[in-house]
């Protein structure tokens, strides 16, 4: 049976909470492999940043390590329907991709065309590519729960 560590934070809204989240996670995971810590901190921060950008001011976050799986969960309400559709399509594209590194490179190529305009749309790709997490989501009315899961083996 794997160890179980659960960290739960509630966020009011503010962007500088991201820094606080990163510091707390670095501290909580300090006995883990540095590569895993970096990947988890980046992925958690990207998910929360997305939730802040596209969601409501109330965001819940949790991180659990159980049965050799590390799961990050972020939930928020009130995502605009267009943003929600775009998010779902983006996750589906990442999940279906056989080479997420190629997706990352493709997105960088697109950004070269006009790096200062439009959404970055790199965060979820980085979570899958750099963080090696598997992305998923569940929708319950206006609540969207996004999870990123990675095996510890």
């Amino acid at each position: 049976m794997g160890d179980r560590v659960t960290i739960v934070y509630e966020f009011a809204s503010v962007q500088d909470k991201l820094k606080e989240l990163r510091k707390k996670l670095q501290h909580q995971l300090r006995d883990k492999d540095p590569e895993l810590v970096d990947a988890t901190v980046m992925s958690a921060a990207e998910l929360v940043e997305n939730a802040i950008k596209y969601g409501s001011s109330e965001i819940s976050f949790n991180l659990a390590i159980e049965n050799d799986l590390l799961t990050i969960g972020v939930a928020n309400r009130s995502m605009d329907q267009g943003d929600l559709d775009s998010f779902k399509a983006h996750v589906a594209k990442i999940r279906q991709s056989e080479d997420v590194g190629e997706l990352y490179t493709q997105r960088l190529m697109e950004l070269i065309e006009d790096p200062l305009r439009g959404p970055t749309q790199l965060g979820l790709i980085r979570i899958a590519h750099e963080g090696k997490f598997e992305l998923d989501y569940r929708q319950e009315d206006d609540l969207i729960r996004v999870t990123a899961t990675r095996s510890l083996n």
Binding site: M42, P115, G123
Partner: peptide, 12 residues
């Protein structure tokens, strides 16, 4: 550490 918005700035 850098977030994905920073990646875009590096492309810029």
């Amino acid at each position: 550490y850098m977030n994905s918005s920073t990646v875009r700035s590096i492309i810029y």
